[in-house]
Design a protein around this nucleic acid. Structure first.
Lengths: 360, 360
DNA sequence: TTGAAAGCGATACCAC
DNA sequence: GTGGTATCGCTTTCAA
């Protein structure tokens, strides 16, 4: 059995209360006594029992808020599943998670939802933010009020958020470049497709991609000028079709944004399936189908589930055990996936129910 | 605040103790009363608070044993790091993990170590087993005694282990095949290298690899007969050198076992670096260096850290909360990695220390 | 068959 | 400054 505060109290000849105050520097304790207690604790390697801590903190009950935007997209639905799972698990430990799911991107609605959750007394917040000055201000204000905020999926750099959980977009671009450079012979022509021209994440991916191909690959791959598709499959289709017809030697397409389904369709309709390698992002249901049908060769995954699952836990740990995240930027893993190492089961299916009585 | 046993007791007009016995079917409770209590619990969606449960169970204290073999290998050292992390975390929740690290594979030593740990009173055990009849018997005997066993990294199929945590070898082979099929043009010559001829995991990888290339790729890749290298770099070097000299058009090498460093060296010395694509397994320090130097194009990762980290938690959950693993075979993720999406930091470096006083 | 009470470990509060 | 005590939610005795 590990060493407890009680044991230290006995050894120091004081009460548990005094030990607690001494070790946590809460004051109101004789400096000499405090020193003695801390020495004993150090020698015994005392660590407070987290279960005991959690139990006492559960008096106030950790009430968390999560707001997701663009919940109509396949990837955000995986993020959602992650949040739900965390919410379920935390509920079993006395936590409470209020989840708001917003369709589309709407800064005003987001700010309203935050206010609503705050008025309901949440002690921590996780959001998929828009990178606007208003939101940055809002995050900083929450920080000032003692409400920690975790950004997920996209970040608000420089704000006083507790941390960010999501993809390292630049590295995601590099990874795609490294893959394509190995996939295609020297001199191959590649078309990069991006989304909105002002989407930071997509731009970072593109930069990582271009930098890597130009610098490290030393220009062995011939890059066509990148084309925006505004995250739309129909535009992506049109652009791809056009470029394919003009470049009969096109060997690869890099899709930094959404639109991969349109790209795949164009490639198939032009009879170039298999000849033109396509690399896109995210492991979700539609992409899974594209992988299975060999329309899409590779996706680079961003662990959407983890992006939803982790933040509530980070907030809980911070609130209940005062534990800071290990880093400010918690980048999710970048797995390269083909149809053979992709699996969504166990993520989208309802997970094993815990011991519960009734509907739960 | 979530619904507690106390609340149910009040609503049912009984005491907490009765509620507890009724909900857990411990008997000694009037059937009618039990029914009423269960109905109320179901309606309220009662779930016992895990923190409360854990605290009371901590009276007995969960004492776990972990035995790792081949700890001299780079990958097992990552597994070790995972075990250590879990041990640290569980200690903070009142758990205790006894870790035995064995060099090499030695069934006898393994069985001795198990006995030793059992005699020290462990209530659960995790091991990297050898697939021998003696060990299977030992696992079954432990099961009979009520000591759950988790196999990790390698399995003992058909034994009464609680579950297995590790790679799906067949799928790992398929993944390599899918990658190589996309990497190389039709007609490319590929050499498969394997380890010991009786290593089940390596054989399964090879089977997955061959099946996939022969069936799904429809023989577009020309396969050379596979060569064993007995997990040794020197043999792998020799074999590779020989084959390279006989096949000036060799386009790829698939390494299902250890030996990749020897393979890479041979390829470089023959001046074929970059021309011959190499796919191997595991993200560990030596492979990381091979990736960085572009000697190795891809590795397929098996989440060694997770293989060490998960089992203690599975045992803890099983012992403390009676929670069964979701599946019997818990396969780790198969991420395809290049130098751009590989990262070992945060795994091998000591992780952020928790609030502690002194040496810990 | 049931209730009352102790106790797991840590913390908060209130007397002294 | 300090010790005592109640408390978190649950399980487990021990009495009744």
């Amino acid at each position: 059995m590990a060493v407890t505060a009680q044991k230290i109290a006995e050894l120091a000849g004081v009460s548990r209360g005094t030990v607690d105050r001494a070790l946590h520097n809460r004051g109101r304790v004789n400096p000499e006594v405090a020193a003695r207690i801390q020495k004993i604790a150090a020698e015994l390697g005392y660590k407070p029992n987290l279960v005991g801590q959690a139990l006492v903190r559960s008096r106030q009950g950790a009430k968390l808020g999560v707001i997701l935007q663009s919940t109509e997209t396949p990837t955000m639905q995986i993020v959602q599943a992650g949040v739900r799972r965390a919410a379920d698990e935390l509920r079993a430990s006395g936590g409470e998670v209020l989840l708001r799911e917003l369709r589309g991107l709407d800064d005003e609605l987001l700010l309203e939802s935050i206010e609503e959750l705050v008025s309901q007394g949440i002690q921590g917040l996780a959001i998929t933010p828009n990178n606007t000055p208003e939101l940055r201000q809002c995050i900083n204000e929450l920080h000032r009020q003692g409400v920690p905020v975790v950004t997920l999926n996209s970040d608000v750099p420089g704000s006083r958020r507790l941390c960010f959980v999501g993809q390292d977009s630049y590295r995601a671009g590099q990874t795609a470049a490294g893959l394509i450079a190995q996939l295609l012979p020297a001199g191959s022509k590649v078309l990069p497709i991006t989304g909105h021209l002002n989407n930071t994440a997509h731009n970072n991916r593109l930069n990582g991609f271009l930098d890597t191909l130009l610098q490290e690959d030393m220009g062995r791959i011939r890059l066509l000028p990148f084309q925006p598709c505004f995250d739309r499959d129909d535009y992506a289709y049109e652009v791809t079709q056009h470029i394919l017809r003009e470049n009969h030697d096109l060997a690869g397409i890099y899709v930094a944004s959404n639109g991969q389904a349109g790209v795949c369709r164009a490639v198939e309709e032009e009879g170039r399936k298999g000849k033109v390698k396509i690399v896109a992002y995210d492991l979700n249901e539609p992409n899974m189908r594209l992988l299975q049908s060999d329309s899409l060769g590779f996706v680079i995954d961003q662990e959407a589930f983890e992006q939803g699952y982790r933040p509530p836990y980070l907030l809980y740990e911070f609130l209940v055990h005062k534990k800071q995240p290990v880093r400010e930027l918690l980048y999710t893993d970048l797995a390269i996936r083909t149809k053979y190492n992709s699996d969504l089961s166990g993520i989208l299916t309802p997970f094993a129910e815990q011991t519960a009585w009734g509907k739960g």
